[in-house]
């Protein structure tokens, strides 16, 4: 029995909030460690409600992120679609994982995403770091995943989002 979509504004609001966090001005050294908030929130909703948040939503969100950050159009859209695809094909397993295991998978997802972004930016002649600093966001994202997970699960349960 397919449940009617309910309280979808919670999903939209959490993604908007993640977007704000993604462009919030940070001091220089922290900027290197800025977690990929949008990817974290997106992956949560894909795991929790795969019938509501899918590849199309991921692409649209990524497109808005591109405009928001002023990057190449389609860069974040493509990467977020890939991350959402990976999460969508693993969601049943990921629901069984402990939060530590989930963090590990997230590290892999977001690290791969960062690597793709890094490749494209280098290929188009943007300034990129010549060390592994581009992977810091993946690490900080994985560390913050349990927090994001519990916050969003609390929101989902208290607002009965389906």
């Amino acid at each position: 029995m397919a449940a009617m979509p309910r309280n979808r504004w919670v999903i939209v609001l959490s993604l908007v909030f993640a977007g704000v966090l993604a462009v919030l001005p940070l001091p220089g050294w922290l900027e290197l460690w800025r977690p990929d908030w949008v990817a974290l929130v997106l992956v949560y909703w894909v795991i929790a409600l795969p019938q509501r948040v899918g590849l199309l939503i991921a692409w649209l969100v990524g497109f808005l992120v591109d405009v928001l950050k002023g990057t190449l159009l389609g860069l974040n859209a493509g990467v977020l679609t890939l991350i959402a695809y990976a999460a969508l094909s693993l969601y049943q397993r990921m629901r069984m994982f402990t939060s530590l295991q989930q963090s590990g998978v997230l590290l892999l997802f977001i690290g791969t995403g960062q690597l793709l972004v890094f490749w494209v930016l280098t290929a188009t002649g943007h300034n990129t770091p010549n060390n592994l600093a581009f992977l810091f966001p993946a690490l900080s994202s994985a560390l913050l995943w349990p927090l994001v997970f519990f916050c969003l699960r609390y929101c989902r349960r208290s607002f009965h989002v389906t």
């Binding site: 993604a22 462009v23 001005p25 220089g28 900027e31 290197l32 800025r34 950050k69 002023g70 990057t71 943007h126 300034n127 990129t128 770091p129």
Partner: peptide
């Protein structure tokens, strides 16, 4: 009102 979140560019 904002700056580029990419730490490797200055926009």
């Amino acid at each position: 009102i904002g700056e580029s979140p990419d730490p490797f560019t200055k926009r």
